[in-house]
Design a protein around this nucleic acid. Structure first.
Length: 588
RNA sequence: GCCUGAGUAGCUCAACUGGAUAGAGUACCUGGCUUCGAACCAGUUGGUUGGGGGUUCGAAUCCCUCCUCGGGCACCA
């Protein structure tokens, strides 16, 4: 509806011979029902340029709008310093509701980014290391952008960049060789992964300890890793352990991706980008080139651009993460040639990424121009920054499992619910989805970029503004619709026109028109919290409507209207949750 | 020290990117299940938007300046 009002405003201004830019015309939903359904500050914005008082200009605009005789407005009021308040007619609401209803489960989908190739890169775990709650955060945020871009019609590629070469691998391999424990060959993927993580921590600990021979040994292993990924025969013993560990890690990662609901179109591995990265860096090294030599290392002198120097090839001649990222730029463009390439990482990599992007832009301007970096806040323990290097981490698996157990307890404590009699296995599946909804929602409801201090009691608190609340509203809507007879449903499916409401327009249907806008806003500002907050408001309005209206009342003149209302609500909630990566349940 | 992000109700967060009386959840208190699912609804209490200055019709939002906290700053990722 914003668009329709904006359109009529533009026409009115043209009729009045007033010059304007789109940014002057802001139509927003009113914050108060007394101020109509929508408000505009256009008269305030343009008063100065036309040398009129805002009220007078508002009056001119109002008169012109009323002459147009669109079915849009019931009335228009001028308030305060010159706000234009629009009251939308019931007929227009009914017509709009019908349009929303016809979109069915496609509601919210557009073709705004049609024919655009969009890469979303996120999660980016390291092999041999624990998957911790920080990875979950990156995944949840990134996955949401993937889905939002899909809804905008883009050709989206969901990818992740996994670290399978480098010091962390060397530390883990040294750990495996020196920890003195038996390999968990016959154990579950999760146990294997835990073992690798333990070996990494063991290696890291010895690497950082002074007077330890481990440091030299690990450095040597690191060198060899770069060789064995090309030629396993160079060190068959090490290669065997390395290959085994990679396999274990990748197997486990699949299970966690599935649990989180991410499907990747492609897995980039550092072992496949470092060669191109190193080659490109070397090609651009020298006088008046992008990179310069500093001793045996190759660096990018970021100071020239207001940043700091970063090492791309270290003194050992090995590519650092920086060079691997250059290789990743190359690979992404080789494979997809994207219009937008979005990367999600933690906030600690903000400046790092800016510098690498700067360097990348000097190699290929497109790499910089089309790359968007979204740094999110850090998910912290109360004790400080979470770090897998010191071992003080919360495993993603444990976090989710514990949440699931708590939900299951809550479910079992509820009596006389439709799922009370469900078999335990089914209850567990439902509990898992609810747990995922709680975790994802708690991450996405905060504007991306802000830190989140992880507090278990808060994260597992399902009352109020939470994921489970949204699911509950969905489940209740679903329950009602199940109770409607097939003939009624068929009659509703065949209608071609909705009779305007006899009772006042509800706040619920007023929110429907904002869905597309909110999806767009969330993607453009790279913050899904707009969507999260919107869905919460929507669920809240639904609950309120539900509490005050007997929907299944065939004698109500708005009977059909209300059923359609609930149907549209259900579709929006489903698609909205989808865009946050949250699965729905039919019963809970 | 330099760069960068943040500071809003007791706590956790919003505020449609400069708009109307700064809103939610939580916690506290009150009322509501014989009625479509009460994991709900309705209401009460709670604010000098870190301090100070500036820009204008209008500032939590933009500018300046202090204060506090987080992150980054050469071969880790």
């Amino acid at each position: 509806m914003n668009q329709e009002i904006t359109h009529t405003l533009k026409n009115a201004l043209t009729d009045l011979n007033i010059e304007f830019q789109s940014k002057h015309i802001k139509v927003v939903p009113s914050n108060d029902t007394n101020n109509g359904d929508f408000s505009s500050t256009v008269a305030l914005q343009l008063a100065k340029t036309v040398q009129k008082s805002p009220q007078k200009l508002a009056q001119n605009i109002k008169d012109t709008l009323l002459q147009q005789k669109t079915p849009l407005f019931e009335k228009i009021e001028i308030a305060g310093p010159g706000f234009l308040n629009f009251f939308i007619s019931k007929k227009y609401y009914a017509d709009t509701l019908y349009k929303h209803f016809q979109k069915g489960t496609n509601i919210g989908k557009t073709n705004r980014l049609q024919n655009k190739v969009f890469i979303t890169e996120h999660t980016d775990p390291n092999l041999f290391k624990e998957v911790h709650i920080g990875h979950v955060m990156t995944n949840v945020i990134g996955e949401s952008f993937y889905r939002l871009a899909k809804f905008a019609g883009a050709n989206v590629k969901n990818v992740t960049f996994q670290g399978d070469v480098g010091m962390h691998i060397a530390k883990a391999l040294w750990g495996i060789q020196n920890i003195g424990e038996e390999l968990p060959i016959n154990k579950s993927p999760y146990e294997k992964q835990k073992f690798l993580g333990k070996c990494y921590v063991f290696g890291e600990k010895h690497f950082s300890t002074e007077n330890s021979s481990a440091k030299a040994e690990i450095t040597q292993i690191n060198k060899e890793i770069y060789t064995i990924v090309q030629n396993p025969e160079s060190n068959p013993t090490l290669s065997k352990i390395y290959t085994m560990g990679c396999k274990w890690s990748l197997e486990y990662l699949e299970t966690i991706y599935e649990l989180l609901g991410s499907k990747f179109d492609h897995y980039f591995l550092e072992s496949t980008t470092f060669r191109d990265g190193a080659r490109i860096v070397k090609e651009h090294t020298g006088e008046n080139k992008v990179f310069t030599k500093s001793g045996n290392a190759i660096v990018f002198e970021g100071e020239k651009y207001g940043y700091h120097t970063r090492v791309f090839i270290n003194s050992e001649g090995l590519p650092t993460y920086e060079a691997k990222d250059i290789g990743l730029f190359y690979k992404k463009w080789e494979k997809y040639n994207p219009d937008y390439s979005l990367t999600i990482t933690g906030g600690d990599q903000k400046e790092y990424f800016t510098i690498v992007k700067e360097a990348a832009g000097l190699i290929n301007p497109e790499w910089k121009e089309k790359t968007i970096h979204r740094a999110h806040g850090i998910l912290k323990l109360k004790t400080g920054k979470m770090s897998s290097r010191t071992g003080g981490i919360i495993r993603a698996q444990e976090w989710i499992d514990e949440a699931q157990e708590n939900v299951l307890k809550t479910i079992n404590a509820q009596q006389n619910t439709p799922i009370s009699s469900f078999p335990e296995k089914e209850k567990k599946q439902i509990a898992q989805k609810i747990a995922i909804s709680a975790i994802k929602y708690s991450i996405l409801k905060v504007s991306a970029g802000k830190d989140i201090v992880y507090d278990e009691s808060v994260a597992l608190d399902f009352a109020g503004n939470t994921g489970p609340y949204l699911l509950y509203s969905y489940v209740r809507a679903n329950s009602i619709l199940e109770k409607i007879s097939k003939t009624t449903l068929a009659n509703i499916q065949n209608i071609t026109y909705i009779t305007p409401r006899s009772s006042p327009i509800t706040l619920l249907e007023k929110k429907f028109s904002q869905f597309e806008f909110v999806l767009k806003l969330s993607l453009e500002t790279l913050s899904s919290h707009h969507l999260a907050n919107y869905l919460y408001d929507l669920a809240s309005e639904f609950s309120s409507f539900y509490a005050h209206t007997k929907i299944l009342d065939e004698t109500n003149p708005d009977y059909f209207y209300n059923i359609i209302l609930i149907t549209v609500f259900k579709n929006i909630m489903y698609n909205g949750l989808y865009c946050m990566g949250i699965p729905t349940v039919e019963k809970m």
